[in-house]
């Protein structure tokens, strides 16, 4: 391997790593706020990419029907759970977020999709379709289990993953799709050829990380989320409903997932089940970060991407083995000699 090959691989790894970083961040966020190990994170990536691909072809994506259905179920679930305490205002609010919003998104999509609107509009539609699925799924699947053990939440997450993957196959079929790049520009930096699309990915990832940082540090909602992550009871005591923080965390998860899908789909073919493996690699990064630190998760994701790129050059048959087993030494290093930590979680 000479330097130029190494640089190309490095670039490739960093780009893939950026996507893993986005997912890793999202996983850490959801876990710290809700204790849910959100396996279905990857499905949002697939849904986002494939919805965009359908819009690009001027077709109405079937995901809008899923959005509508999820909204209805979420509304029903919330009204049922709070049937004794609901105020009329609250019911109206639920109707607004869970019924009117998806209906509006669906209507706009059906109207615009056949007209093949500009890429920016397609992306906006995609994000509008996929993002609300996050909180809807939280409301129907996880909120009723809020006090359950991490294991139960994990199994529920697997149930959601199975259902969403199945839906993905029904909506999009088994074959993959790929979208047009936002930019077809190519830049030459030394011996390295850098595509405009990869710059987009790096830029958006960096911007999103910065935005998340600002969100957590500067806004009240962000602080509330952090408070919930540290101490659910404490957050409740100072007047932050954990269910609200959780819904926001899942909204962000939906948004980040859909955005990752939109970003990555011009680079590679995305299938209905691609998300799972991408999500797992995001997990590897999140685990390395101890499911706690955002900056470390980001850095670890880049590391995973680079290791993957190098492994695909050196030993492509064993690439996955290498990528997944790097977490073992990292985890050992993290826990070796650390004091026994008591977990009050059962």
């Amino acid at each position: 391997m000479d330097l130029s090959i190494f640089l190309i691989l490095l670039q490739d790894g960093v780009i893939n790593g950026a996507i893993y970083a986005l997912l890793g961040l999202s996983l850490v966020l959801v876990f710290t706020v809700t204790r849910v190990i959100f396996i279905p994170q990857g499905e949002f990536v697939s849904f986002g990419a494939l919805t965009l691909a359908l819009l690009e072809r001027g077709q109405t994506p079937a995901t809008i029907w899923l959005l509508l259905a999820l909204g209805v179920v979420s509304a029903v679930a919330q009204v049922w759970q709070g049937r004794r305490t609901l105020s009329a205002r609250r019911v109206l609010a639920i109707a607004g977020t869970d019924l009117a919003l998806p209906a509006a998104v669906a209507a706009v999509t059906m109207l615009l999709a056949p007209m093949k609107p500009p890429v920016a509009v397609q992306i906006a539609l995609t994000l509008a379709i996929i993002t609300p699925m996050g909180p809807y799924i939280y409301r129907m699947a996880f909120q009723p289990l809020a006090e359950a053990s991490t294991l139960v939440l994990l199994i529920a997450a697997i149930g959601v993953h199975l259902a969403l993957t199945g839906l993905g196959l029904v909506f999009f079929g088994a074959e993959g799709s790929r979208t047009e790049p936002f930019s077809s520009a190519m830049f030459e930096i030394g011996s390295l050829l850098v595509s405009g699309q990869s710059l987009w990915i790096m830029g958006v990832t960096a911007a999103l990380v910065a935005a998340l940082g600002a969100f957590f540090e500067l806004t009240l909602t962000g602080k509330a989320l952090r408070a919930t992550a540290v101490n659910r009871l404490g957050a409740r005591l100072v007047g932050i409903a954990p269910s609200m923080s959780s819904a926001i965390a899942f909204t962000l998860a939906g948004f980040i997932g859909a955005l990752s899908g939109v970003l990555v789909s011009p680079l590679t073919t995305i299938y209905y089940d691609t998300g799972f493996l991408i999500g797992l690699k995001g997990f590897v990064a999140a685990i390395i970060a101890g499911l706690a630190s955002y900056p470390i998760a980001g850095a670890a994701a880049i590391l995973v991407g680079v290791v993957e790129a190098l492994a695909s050059f050196w030993a492509s048959s064993f690439k996955e083995v290498i990528v997944f087993l790097i977490i073992i030494p990292v985890l050992l290093w993290r826990t070796w000699g650390a004091p026994v930590v008591e977990e009050d979680d059962h």
Partner: peptide, 20 residues
């Protein structure tokens, strides 16, 4: 001889190795 996975998002490493 190189290998890749069906849902892989990148085969750059393999491609470079092949071309080498």
């Amino acid at each position: 001889v190189e290998r890749y996975n069906r849902p892989d998002t990148s085969v750059t490493g393999q491609a470079l190795k092949l071309m080498a």
